[in-house]
């Protein structure tokens, strides 16, 4: 008794239509267009001319600023992601104890990641690390009088951005905390009875049990770190300075596209980023079989 309304294919497509239509218009078509632009000199005002691999060649051999931006971005990603996850795990383990007031601490640690993406916080950050800012004020209390602007010095500017990212470890911490809670207490008790110390229990039980969560966090955070834009834009007032030291990849791409209207070149940059991020995610997935531990699940 197949009635019209019971035709699952039609109904399925009706329900998922918003995604499928949106995917085609706002993702699939722009991706193809972007790939095409990357082989042109498109500048928004004139019709694009095919230039072959010129944009890619310029990027790789004729653009010092591009490489500067790549270096800055890798420094940012390689420092902020591991530090953030390490903090998240360490604090989650501290909070995973049955001691009063945990809820309050949990909120305090989570608050920065709740507001960290906002422009307000980026603005605040420029003042925390400014020449007369909060950090220097505290250093003054300790007898170290300095008027260095941590934001304004090429050597330290990127580290203020890294600090801003690490400061927001709270959301990963909550995920780890949920993961820690799901580890059966009996595992630790058994290991305890067998005489395993805290360090051994951490490496043999906690880390393996958390490894799927760590992998997930590592991949998602690496991707979002590569795309970081707002704090770099706000802190450097859209310039990526001083001396390009905060010129994260997305910011450089934005400048090329919307300040110099080099849509072709910027599209080529976007595709190099997509491929880089894709390869890194793939490598993380591939290596995961050596370090990620999956519980064998039955039907549940």
């Amino acid at each position: 008794m197949t009635k019209f309304r019971e035709n699952n294919h039609l109904v399925g497509y009706l329900f998922t239509a918003p995604f499928i239509i949106g995917f085609l218009i706002f993702t699939m078509f722009p991706m193809l267009a972007s790939l095409y632009y990357s082989f042109t000199d498109y500048n928004l005002f004139e019709a694009p001319n095919w230039v072959g691999f010129d944009n890619y060649k310029t990027m790789f051999s004729g653009d010092d600023q591009y490489w500067k931006s790549v270096r800055v971005t890798f420094t940012y990603v390689l420092a902020s992601v591991p530090l953030r996850l390490a903090f998240a795990l360490a604090v989650a383990m501290l909070l995973n104890k049955a001691i009063g007031g945990i809820g309050l601490y949990r909120s305090a640690y989570y608050l920065p990641s709740l507001i960290g993406g906002s422009v307000a916080v980026s603005i605040m950050w420029t003042q925390v690390f400014g020449d007369k800012g909060l950090l220097n004020s505290f250093l003054g209390l300790l007898g170290i009088h300095t008027t260095t602007s941590w934001i304004g010095s090429p050597g330290t500017a990127i580290w203020t951005l890294i600090a801003l990212s690490v400061w927001q470890f709270g959301s990963s911490m909550l995920i780890f905390l949920a993961g820690l809670k799901s580890i059966p207490a009996s595992l630790h008790e058994a290991a305890n009875v067998d005489g395993a110390g805290a360090g051994r229990r951490f490496f043999k039980i906690t880390l393996p049990m958390l490894s799927p969560i760590i992998l997930f966090n590592l991949i998602m955070q690496t991707i979002s770190a590569f795309m970081t834009f707002t704090p770099a834009y706000v802190i450097s007032r859209g310039e990526g300075g001083p001396l390009d030291s905060t010129l994260l990849y997305s910011l450089y791409l934005y400048k090329r596209a919307f300040q110099f209207t080099q849509m072709g070149y910027a599209s080529a940059m976007a595709w190099v980023m997509l491929l880089t991020v894709g390869v890194i995610a793939l490598i993380l997935f591939q290596t995961s079989k050596y370090w990620v531990h999956y519980e064998s699940k039955g039907e549940s």
Partner: peptide, 14 residues
């Protein structure tokens, strides 16, 4: 997992 940067420019043009 798709970086926003890839779709940003054609979306803007569109």
């Amino acid at each position: 997992m798709l970086p926003h940067d890839v779709t940003m420019i054609p979306q803007y043009v569109m």
